[in-house]
Design a protein around this nucleic acid. Sequence first.
DNA 1: TTGACATATTCCAACATCGGAATACGTTAG
DNA 2: CTAACGTATTCCGATGTTGGAATATGTCAA
Lengths: 112, 112
Amino acid sequence: MARKATTFDLFSAIAEPRRRELIEKLIGKELFVNQLVALLGWKQPTVSKHLKVLKEVGVVSERKEGRMRVYKVNAPSLKPVQEWVNQFENYWEYNLDNLEVYLEDIQTKKEE
Amino acid sequence: MARKATTFDLFSAIAEPRRRELIEKLIGKELFVNQLVALLGWKQPTVSKHLKVLKEVGVVSERKEGRMRVYKVNAPSLKPVQEWVNQFENYWEYNLDNLEVYLEDIQTKKEE
DNA sequence: TTGACATATTCCAACATCGGAATACGTTAG
DNA sequence: CTAACGTATTCCGATGTTGGAATATGTCAA
């Protein structure tokens, strides 16, 4: 056994550079698929497939409008990503070597 | 042609669930590989391989300490992720249907 | 120096992913 | 109803990714 599907995971969905590019086009507006195709310059099936992945993880949502479909970003779906990254915010300022923790680790090691 | 390597991309590096788990163990402290192995319960080569990926994208850094190696998170390396996600922060509050933009799109379409 | 230890690397099999091409599906226009 | 349109889906080949096992590398201890 080697791998699990990652496409249905939020972090993996936005890991794809082209999917991030697509998402950015949808910031603050709603677009039809053919508009996205024009903006991005990709093949239509490529756009649709990436939209499908993003829809499955909830990053975009879709609405039918006649024979067209309108896509938009579901911004709150990205909160888990921000929350995860924010865990590290406290450590952004100083990239200190943190001697204390280091020494503590050494000590822990010695005691084993 | 089908794919580009993703392992050397920051977003892909943290897309791996196990790598996120590993990174979390290093929040606020430095750990030896064998400590990570113990904490995570994975095989040692598995831990080393994930550390390698994370090191390549700069998420962790490493220091030799005798025959051991000390790893720590390089928190600022995660800034691009936070910045990317923050683009959407303005749209977190209201998940409004944004009728205006929608109608504008319709109009744009008609004009084509 | 030599063996034990800590960690890294290589090789491999299973499987996931991506883009392209072709095609299917649903809806509207005429 | 039928053709055109907009979008989604399927199939495929090339290639990336992962964990496991085995092994290599480097360093300390005796």
